[in-house]
């Protein structure tokens, strides 16, 4: 099987996104900021329930 991009000049945008560690960093950042950390802030900022 051949790769259509064999021996071809790779566009700069693709070169940028072919860096595994850069993509990994971005993926972790978005998930941890918007889901995990924001979620934890929501939980820990809940007021204590007043029991009857």
């Amino acid at each position: 099987m051949t790769n259509p991009q064999d021996n071809q000049k790779v566009p700069w945008g693709q070169q940028l996104f072919e860096r595994p560690l850069l993509l990994l960093g971005l993926g972790l950042l978005v998930m941890f900021v918007f889901y995990t950390i924001w979620g934890l802030i929501e939980i820990f900022s809940l007021p204590q329930a007043t029991l009857p």
Binding site: N3, Q5, D6, N7, Q8, K9, V10, Q14, E18, P20, L23
Partner: peptide, 13 residues
């Protein structure tokens, strides 16, 4: 490999 990463490999990445 030369050029870009194959698309299937990029999907696996």
């Amino acid at each position: 490999y030369t050029g870009g990463m194959p698309l299937v490999t990029f999907g696996a990445l």
